[in-house]
Amino acid sequence: MERARVDHQTKRDLRAADTGAWASIKETVKVGVQALLIALVVRTLLFQPFNIPSGSLVPTLLVGDYLFVSKYSYGYSKYSLPLSEYLPFKADGRIWAAEPKRGDIAVFKLPKDNATDYIKRVIGLPGDKIQMKAGILYINDVAVKRERIAPYETTGPYGEETKVEQYTETLPNGVVHQVIEREGDNGYWDNTEPYLVPPGRYFMMGDNRDNSTDSRDLANVGFVPFENFVGRAEMIFFSIDEGTPAWQIWQWPTKVRWGRIFSSIH
């Protein structure tokens, strides 16, 4: 009898242990699903991560920068939301629309294919006249203030260390940012015809003026429709030297640009 009671108690203990283990598994799954749903909502509606694959916004953004883009800054369009065909977009292609401001760094879908993500700075607003003359940016026939500062240290076409001219630009609304001129003031896009920005379109440029395919190139980028905007670049959350994969954590101590992490974008 004593042996039977012991066996019975053991079975009850095993059942209790199984029940507790199953409850623990269910709780873990529940927490995991909740975390995934929260991450999905955040990524869909609030912030989306992007990484910088090219140097068109040097010195502001570097190859290897990882940043958060706020998707709510300009409202939402079919290019920034999944299942957008079921949403009530207005005639201008956005809901809860808020217009980009001059000087914003924004991610948008390339008008040429409406699929490729591009990131540039907002320079021209609807109705503006934009022109480059000898490296100087003109907005509505007024030269944008430009001041030379210390040269920017970078690499040349063959990987050699070099220095290029660097300036601060002050846009008409007071936004101050840096630009570089790798080819001086006589690069391919340093002298252009005037561009008249159509209604509902924006003129986008890179800060690396001689190494940026942007709205100056009408055939490949041109004027960007408002509905193509995905969001505004807000903060760098990670940065690693060009050519170093982020997953190689053993290289982080020497390759991560620690001073750029959690820095805001202007």
Rank of each mutant, 00 (worst) to 15 (best):
M1H: 08
E2P: 01
H8Y: 08
T10F: 14
R12F: 03
D13Y: 05
T19R: 13
W22R: 14
S24K: 09
S24Q: 09
K26G: 03
V33R: 02
L36R: 07
L40H: 04
L40S: 07
V41Y: 11
V42N: 03
Q48S: 09
Q48H: 11
F50K: 02
P53D: 14
P59Q: 10
P59W: 04
T60Q: 02
L62G: 08
D65L: 07
S70V: 15
S70W: 10
S70F: 12
K71I: 11
S73Y: 13
G75Y: 01
L81C: 02
Y86F: 13
L87M: 14
I95V: 15
W96S: 04
A97Q: 14
R102T: 02
A106C: 11
V107P: 11
V107C: 06
P111G: 05
K112Y: 05
K112R: 13
A115W: 13
D117N: 12
I119K: 04
V122K: 00
I123K: 00
G127D: 01
K129S: 05
M132P: 04
K133T: 12
Y138H: 10
V142Y: 04
K145F: 11
A150T: 12
T154H: 07
P157T: 06
T162W: 14
Q166E: 12
P172R: 11
V175D: 01
Q178N: 11
I180R: 02
I180K: 10
R182V: 06
E183H: 07
G184W: 05
L196A: 05
V197F: 01
R201D: 00
Y202E: 01
M205F: 09
D207L: 06
N208Y: 02
D210C: 06
S212V: 04
T213N: 15
N220S: 13
V224N: 02
F229G: 00
M235H: 12
M235L: 12
I236M: 03
F237D: 03
P245C: 02
W258C: 02
